[in-house]
């Protein structure tokens, strides 16, 4: 069982809530994925609109933990203010910290990310930072008090899977006891399984499920793949070899020439 900030979790799949074809599709996907955590955001709402109210009612009815994000924030001030607002509305100390540095790849601005993380940890937040596989940034995030890291697999929404499995493997090896969540860029269940086989603790999915032809079915497929990958990791997989080694023993073979 996974433990993040004192919360025990059975599911190793986290689900984003944006870009689904309909709210019904989102609700179904949450169910078929068996996820226990969904990410949410904050947006402007006008006085006569009920959109946010309806969305929030639906999310609450799904009985999952909520992880608010600071999506769209580019500066420390924006991210920290958004986090405070999210804490009041969603009544949770959990915050998925995103501070975007570049518009095409949506890479994090790592300097602002670490600064914002420091301020939020001091303020009692449980920070889930969206970062890259850079070891020194990871180290600094842990130094300022983050207890979980969320490195990207590939740019947000790109569906490419794990762009840098070597970097991700190194990150896992450097911080063996930190819960690591792959956040961003996953496209196929096999990508998720690959990350779990590397020893990653959880996968956060949004586009891969929401933009699939049948989101609920895809969510179920991902749940199975993540379970498979985790079991495989725990079962101790064999290593790659260069040469063949027959799987059937040769001793005792009949001499039939």
């Amino acid at each position: 069982m996974l433990n993040m900030y004192g919360t025990a979790l059975q599911s190793r799949l986290m689900l984003g809530t944006s870009q689904y074809p309909s709210p019904a599709s989102l609700a179904e996907s949450v169910k078929t994925s068996n996820t226990q955590i969904v990410t949410v955001s904050l947006r402007r709402e006008s006085g006569d609109s009920l959109a946010g109210q309806h969305f929030w009612q639906m999310i609450q009815s799904l009985n999952v933990h909520v992880l608010p994000n600071t999506a769209g924030c580019h500066t420390v001030k924006e991210a920290v203010t958004t986090a405070h607002m999210a804490r009041e509305v969603f009544k949770t100390d959990w915050i998925k910290l995103e501070v975007i540095g570049e518009q095409d790849t949506l890479q994090p601005d790592v300097y602002a990310l670490v600064d914002a993380a420091r301020l939020l940890v001091q303020d009692g937040f449980k920070v889930f930072p969206y970062c890259t596989e850079d070891l020194s940034v990871a180290g600094k995030l842990l130094d300022v008090g983050c207890e979980v890291l969320m490195p990207w697999g590939a740019p947000i929404g790109s569906g490419r899977g794990l762009n840098n499995p070597y970097g991700l493997r190194t990150l896992r090896a450097h911080f063996p006891d930190v819960p690591l969540v792959i956040d961003a860029g996953i496209g196929l269940p096999s990508h998720a399984a690959q990350a779990m086989e590397l020893g990653y603790d959880m996968i956060l999915l949004n586009t891969a499920v929401a933009k699939a032809g049948d989101p609920a079915k895809m969510a179920g497929a991902f749940a199975q793949a993540i379970e498979a990958g985790r079991s495989a990791y725990e079962a101790g997989p064999i290593e790659k070899r260069d040469m063949a080694e027959p799987s059937t023993p040769v001793l005792g073979k009949a001499y039939l020439v």
């Binding site: 904050l42 509305v89 949004n206």
Partner: peptide, 28 residues
């Protein structure tokens, strides 16, 4: 700047003030 709910009672607005009112929304 964030204005927490308890503080909203105290705040008096002035001409030209910029207020943001946000609600839960879909996010990834």
């Amino acid at each position: 700047h964030f204005v927490s709910e308890p503080n909203r009672q105290q705040i008096q607005l002035k001409e030209g003030d910029k207020v943001e009112v946000l609600a839960p929304m879909q996010g990834g």
